[in-house]
Design a protein around this nucleic acid. Structure first.
Lengths: 197, 197
DNA sequence: AAGTTACGATACGTTGACGTATCGCTACGA
DNA sequence: TCGTAGCGATACGTCAACGTATCGTAACTT
């Protein structure tokens, strides 16, 4: 007779979940939200279709879970450097994520999914708002310390900086390279004082 | 015996094409690229499915044609005002288009479609590059005339300004309002000289 | 060692969409 | 006014994907 909480979990369960979620993210990146097919996920994961339905009630639940598990990125190191340098590292990191990671691959699918399903939209907006916070805070701190011009709106500035990077990923053929971060900052916030160069 | 060019075209043909393309854009806005269904388009348009296949060979051709016909917007009036004012009108127009028009409704579907199909991607990027040109030119002119700071990269500046607006549409729950255009410009390019206020 | 349970394989019924074909009807052009 | 051709309706065959059910196997727990 099991107690309220099982003491150990069958490792097959966790293993199946992980390999299926990873395959689902691949599928979302390559096929997208609209064409997402459970049987392809099973094939990718090397798993029977029944195993997927054993863990998720239907397709949408799997997609939602996959998106939720997408958002685990190493935070940028903000322990040292001028505000300008820290901001540069953040933006370079964002640029790298958008071009290299599973998140970048799934971004168009997420945007599409957010437009079609209210729950996914809510999650998407909530997560993005959370992800922006360090950038906004850093800009505000840079303004307070005199490193950035005093007459800027931190939230709008963050949206302009991040927006440029997302814009390049989604609307142009040349995604933003991490090395361009400095130039972007200089163009939006003005060049640094001479003694910093 | 018809000459090389028919002198008149049966008006039923043109009428069918227009009503079907309009319905296809509605479908793309509401359902998206992945779930796009020809029979729904026919129902929306009040047209037989056979009429659609009479004019387009398959689904993808109709989608591509619909996207191509999406891009007809009234150009912003740039005949008067300071560079700052003109830029404000452009950005306010972009913001309005992204929230109100068929283009704005279809944007997520276009981004998704561009990720899945090479021809649509190419078209998407090409069109967007074309659409950005007036903004970049205006910023460059404003720099040349001394209205904007001299040390800015016009292309990057344009991407930051437009990027902020697109970012708000795609990644947040609060789309960019046309009235915010001034604040955005002030935040990216710095506030105007006092005599202009 | 024994019992349990998650697993993969596979078959199944159902649905929905694709794209084709046929056929009267009627708007159009001459 | 007459022939043509675009039209809507509808039926059709095909296929792909959904989600369910069954079953023998093998991994895990105790």
């Amino acid at each position: 007779m099991p107690t309220a909480l099982k003491r150990t979990v069958d490792p097959r369960i966790e293993r199946s979940r992980q390999v299926i979620l990873a395959a689902a993210l691949q599928e979302l990146g390559e096929i997208g939200y609209g064409g997402f097919v459970i049987e392809s996920v099973a094939a990718r994961a090397g798993v029977g279709k029944s195993t997927i339905y054993r863990h998720w009630p239907d397709k949408l639940a799997l997609i939602a879970d996959a998106f939720a598990h997408l958002h685990e990125s190493a935070p940028t190191d903000l322990s040292h450097g001028t505000p300008r340098e820290k901001l540069g590292r953040i933006l370079a990191h964002v640029a790298a994520v958008l071009t290299d990671s599973a998140f970048g691959a799934c971004l168009p699918a997420m945007i599409d999914a957010a437009e079609r399903d209210a729950a996914l939209r809510d999650f998407h907006h909530r997560f993005q708002a959370e992800a922006r916070k360090p950038t906004v805070a850093l800009i505000a701190a840079g303004i307070a310390s005199g490193d950035f011009p005093a007459d800027r709106n931190p939230a709008l500035t963050a949206q302009a900086l991040l927006g440029a990077i997302f814009f390049r990923r989604l609307m142009t053929a040349e995604p933003f390279a991490p090395a361009e971060a400095r130039a972007l900052i200089d163009t939006v916030l003005g060049p640094p004082p001479l003694q910093e160069r």
